[in-house]
Amino acid sequence: MSQDRLYVVTNDQITPGRVRVGTVMIWASFALLVVIATWQVLGGYDLTYDFSNWRPTLYAYLFFVTCYCMALVVRHGEQGKRRLFIVPATIFVLSMVFIPLVFGLSIAFSDWNLSSVSGQQYNGFDNIRQMWQDDFYWNALTNMLWYTLAIIVEYVIAFGLALLLNSQIRARKFFRVAFLLPLMLSPVAVSWMVGKSMLEARFGPIARLARTLGIDNPSFFGDAETARAMIMIMDAWTFIPFMMIMLLAGLQSIPKDIQEAARVDGATPWQNFREVTFPLMLPVSITAIMIRIIFKLKLADIIINVTSGGPGGATDSVTSFIFREYRDRSNVGYGTMLAMVYLVFIVIGFTLFLKLAARWMRPKY
Rank of each mutant, 00 (worst) to 15 (best):
D50G: 11
D50L: 12
F51A: 08
N53S: 14
N53A: 04
W54E: 04
W54C: 03
R55P: 00
R55I: 08
P56E: 05
P56N: 03
T57H: 03
T57C: 02
Y59D: 06
Y61V: 06
L62M: 15
L62R: 07
F63V: 12
F63Y: 13
V65C: 15
V65G: 01
C67L: 09
Y68H: 14
Y68V: 04
C69D: 02
M70E: 05
M70R: 08
M70P: 00
A71M: 10
A71Q: 01
A71H: 01
V73S: 02
V74D: 00
V74N: 00
V74F: 00
R75N: 10
H76F: 12
H76M: 10
H76K: 14
G77D: 01
G77C: 05
G77I: 02
E78C: 09
E78L: 13
E78H: 14
Q79A: 07
G80P: 00
K81P: 00
R82G: 13
R82V: 07
R82W: 09
R83C: 05
R83M: 13
R83I: 01
R83K: 11
F85S: 06
F85T: 15
I86E: 02
I86G: 12
A89D: 02
A89Q: 07
I91K: 01
F92I: 12
F92W: 11
V93S: 05
V93R: 05
L94E: 07
L94F: 10
S95M: 11
V97S: 09
V97A: 03
V97R: 13
V97Q: 10
F98R: 07
F98H: 14
F98S: 12
F98I: 15
I99W: 06
I99S: 01
L101D: 02
V102N: 06
